[in-house]
Amino acid sequence: MSPAGEITVLLAALKSGDASAESRLIGLVYDDLHALARRYMRRERPGHTLQPTALVNETYLRLISDRAVDWKGRAHFFAIAATVMRRILVDYARQRAAGKRIGGRQRVDLDAFMAAASPRIEQLLILDQALTRLAEWGPRQARLVEMIYFGGLTEKEAAEALRISVRTVRRDWSASRAWLQNQLSKPPA
């Protein structure tokens, strides 16, 4: 089956409660989103930031030409895309970290006058691990973090995707954010 057709089917399966559909969906979406992300990175002018939602939207339109996918299917797709975006970033971070160990190509930023605000590789990996742990006892909150932080969804969009109220989203997000931030500020074990 074509990726598009398969995605539609898998979304339907997901909706009817087939959890295994999710990991297959992630695999299908990964390549497309990854390529697209790279294209954006190249096209965007310097100083601009990548719009994760624009990226996800485009992937959605490319992969799901089937209008039969309803809004619930769409919400699922966005949730999955966020997972994929997390994975893209974390994979990249892991590769970089591994490359460093092997190649010994350490980088020093000695620019005394500027500190980059982007998350450092290490922090990203710690966050990823913490998020995985959070998912063990708070799967909804972990999923929400993926959507908002990695997927760039607004609170409202996330609420729609998770089918919970915006107020709940806000509560979950505040707590998860604070908990994760606390994990990040702990000294590495």
């Binding site: 965007e44 310097p46 100083g47 601009h48 930031t49 990548l50 719009q51 994760p52 970033l89 500027m114 500190a115 980059a116 605000a117 982007s118 998350p119 922090q123 990203l124 966050l127 973090v145 932080y149 990695f150 760039g152 505040s174 707590a175 954010r177 604070a178 908990w179 994760l180 931030q181 606390n182 990040l184 500020s185």
Partner: peptide, 24 residues
């Protein structure tokens, strides 16, 4: 967590932001 809630951190910036564009 309450203490973290009061201050800014990594999760407040999109991980996709261009570091050169972001304010220090």
């Amino acid at each position: 967590m309450v203490a973290e809630h009061a201050r800014g951190g990594m999760l407040d910036h999109s991980p996709w932001d261009d570091p050169t564009a972001a304010a220090a």
